[in-house]
Computed example of a mutant assay.
Amino acid sequence: MHIQLQQIVPVPLKDKFSKRGSDVWNNNLQFAPGEWIKIKAPSGTGKTTLVHILYKLRSDYEGTILWNNTPLQQITGDALAAMRQQQVSIVFQDLRLFPNLTARENIELNRVLQEPYCESSTIDAMAEVLGITHILHQKAALCSYGEQQRIAIIRAMVQPFSWLLMDEPFSHLDQQNITKAAALIAAECTKRNAGIILTDLEDDTFFKYHKTLYL
């Protein structure tokens, strides 16, 4: 699935972004299927805003975004739900777990939204890789933020997708756990020939990016 950005700029930040250069805002971009893209920017320059725009959680922007040549603004209702269930998965910066559900229950919600993409045992296998098997039965609210990030990563992996959006997905993980999580994500995206759009504050070597853009 191709993604095109045509002169996108968030309305609330329009004046701010018009006064400095950006590889993304007010530019024309094309992301091809299977591309791994890093978007680097300091705090306050719109990383989360961009991710929310791409996932259609925000519409307060000028310009046009096309998913497979269809304007994102025209994708609504069942079509939008299907896109989020089958084409686009996401790791939010604020994670958006349900605090009163267990870690496993949070993950299962994505796995069974439709015809399950993988077996329930896949959750156990991924949890073992990321070192969180022991907290699968705990309510998400009782897990540390780093544990919650790993729950959110697994949740994103157990549904079908051709694009994976990630907004600072490793911010509360140490280097050892970042290495494990990045390897898991890379393996899954390679297997599916899926694209990655990752935002973060700094340069990194998490993935072999095809493009690095400065917001």
Score class of each variant (00 low, 15 high):
H2R: 05
F31S: 03
E62T: 07
M1K: 14
T45Y: 15
T205P: 07
R96D: 06
I135W: 04
M126F: 15
Q176C: 11
S59M: 09
F207V: 13
I132H: 00
K19H: 15
L5G: 15
L97Y: 09
N27I: 03
T48L: 01
P116R: 04
K47N: 04
N177P: 06
L113C: 10
G34R: 00
P99D: 01
N110Y: 01
A127V: 14
K211V: 06
H2F: 04
Q87M: 10
Q87R: 06
Q6D: 15
S22M: 12
L5K: 15
G146F: 14
L184I: 12
K38V: 06
A32M: 12
L72D: 11
E108S: 11
G131R: 01
P116A: 06
T102P: 02
V112N: 13
A141E: 15
F98Q: 10
R192P: 00
E62N: 12
L29P: 07
F161Q: 11
S59H: 09
Q85L: 01
K191P: 10
I3H: 11
Q175K: 07
P99T: 01
L130P: 10
Q148D: 02
P169R: 05
A140E: 10
L198H: 03
F207L: 08
F17R: 12
L136M: 07
H210K: 14
N106D: 06
L97E: 12
M83F: 00
G21M: 09
V129M: 05
M1C: 14
A82C: 08
F161M: 14
Q7R: 10
G131H: 05
D124I: 02
I3N: 04
D15E: 15
E119G: 13
T76M: 06
F17N: 12
E147A: 00
L113F: 15
P169D: 08
I196V: 05
Q93P: 01
D78T: 14
A183E: 06
T48K: 03
L136D: 02
A81H: 13
Y117S: 11
V24Y: 00
T179I: 07
K180C: 04
Q4M: 02
S89W: 02
W25V: 01
I178L: 05
N110T: 07
L5D: 04
P71G: 08
S144Y: 02
N110S: 14
Y214Q: 04
E128P: 09
G77I: 01
G46Y: 03
T48N: 02
A41W: 10
D174T: 02
V112T: 15
A152N: 04
T70N: 00
K19Y: 13
I185L: 08
T205F: 09
L57C: 09
C189Y: 08
Q30K: 14
D23E: 05
T190C: 03
N110K: 03
L5N: 10
R150M: 09
